[in-house]
Design a protein around this nucleic acid. Structure first.
Lengths: 187, 187
DNA sequence: GCCACCATGTAATCGGTTACATGATTAA
DNA sequence: TTAATCATGTAACCGATTACATGGTGGC
């Protein structure tokens, strides 16, 4: 079995405290969604593959009449996770952002509309920064306190800082453009 | 024909000055790669679909014995591009970043290795910021001067600023963690 | 003569999403 | 009793990548 990124997300989330497929899905959705996504359709088969490869072990543990299967890392799984974390290979990035795409093409608009894409990128980041402040960072801080894991919180702070930076950058650029611009760009 | 994101990238790149599939591929690769990717396998069939829908028109124009097909936007294509740029719908974002994923899971490493993911995120952004400074921003500036389009340059400045911000943020965080941390996070 | 670049494609595969199915538990 | 949440899945599809094919041009 050749692990892919999905495998590592699942191993990592089990390390961070998730136990079932459902909890993995939930954790990804609330804490890693801004730099990774995963749907349940990927998670459950992946759990089976990882178990077959001996990287995790699962046991059925229904809660009430509700079926449930809890997994935990094996020593081999923990080793594979660490090796991946340390491997020197260039980490993959895929960033597909329709907002930035619209910004790139904004020249196609008439003068009065041209600031629209920039504003909508700013507004989106303002909304997201607010969500980080209100939900994601506090949740990560609570998690850090009760689990001793620092890096999910650090990632959440990264997300907050990133969106604050974007909103700020867009504001500055809106002012610069409104100020008559088209003259001297960049520094 | 129902246009998707790929359609708009193609329309937009034709607006920005690309004429052939090859030039679209090249433009995306050099100037939009940090927030969008596209391979030739997607481009050529898309050009045919857009032509069938009347949004672009193409003519064969071989250069020497080398076959080539040049496209340009029709009025309908220009209109569809503008409508998309103005539509109020939430722009899609997909950010999948193995570097940030490793940062998120860094607690799984032993103490001595734990800063690795953070450093590698910083180093990657340092390298990319350098590429923006040396190649991408200057190319965008040259393009802006000769075409009158401002927003590809603005996007490039966004990319530069973003990677500078990431590198700076990581440095700060590395210092904070090295300084004994684990105490009081965030502000 | 070889390599880099221009230029367009086919075939096979894969990773991921959408839509849907099923059924139990808990709180309003 | 209804909705939200817990919990796990199947089937169909689609967008995108990988690998490869083909062939011309221009510079070293």
């Amino acid at each position: 079995m050749k692990p892919n990124s999905t495998s590592y997300v699942v191993l990592g989330m089990l390390h961070v405290g998730a136990r079932s497929g459902y909890e993995i899905k939930r954790l990804v959705a609330i804490s890693a969604r801004f730099f990774w996504t995963l749907s349940s359709v990927q998670i459950y088969p992946e759990l089976k593959r990882l178990q077959a490869a001996g990287l995790i072990k699962g046991r059925d543990q229904p809660s009430g009449g509700r079926r449930r299967r809890l997994y935990s890392l094996t020593p081999a799984g923990r080793r594979v996770l660490r090796e991946w974390l340390l491997d020197g290979s260039e980490p993959s990035v895929e960033w597909r952002d329709e907002g930035l795409l619209k910004l790139f093409f904004a020249d196609a608009l008439e003068e009065g509309d041209r600031l629209g894409p920039l504003q909508s990128v700013r507004e989106r980041s303002e909304r997201l920064a607010e969500r980080f402040r209100a939900e994601i960072v506090p949740a990560a801080r609570a998690g850090a306190e009760h689990s001793g894991h620092d890096y999910p919180l650090i990632s959440a702070r990264f997300g907050l800082g990133f969106h604050e930076w974007v909103a700020e950058w867009c504001s500055t650029m809106e002012r610069e453009i409104a100020a008559g611009e088209s003259a001297a760009p960049v520094g």
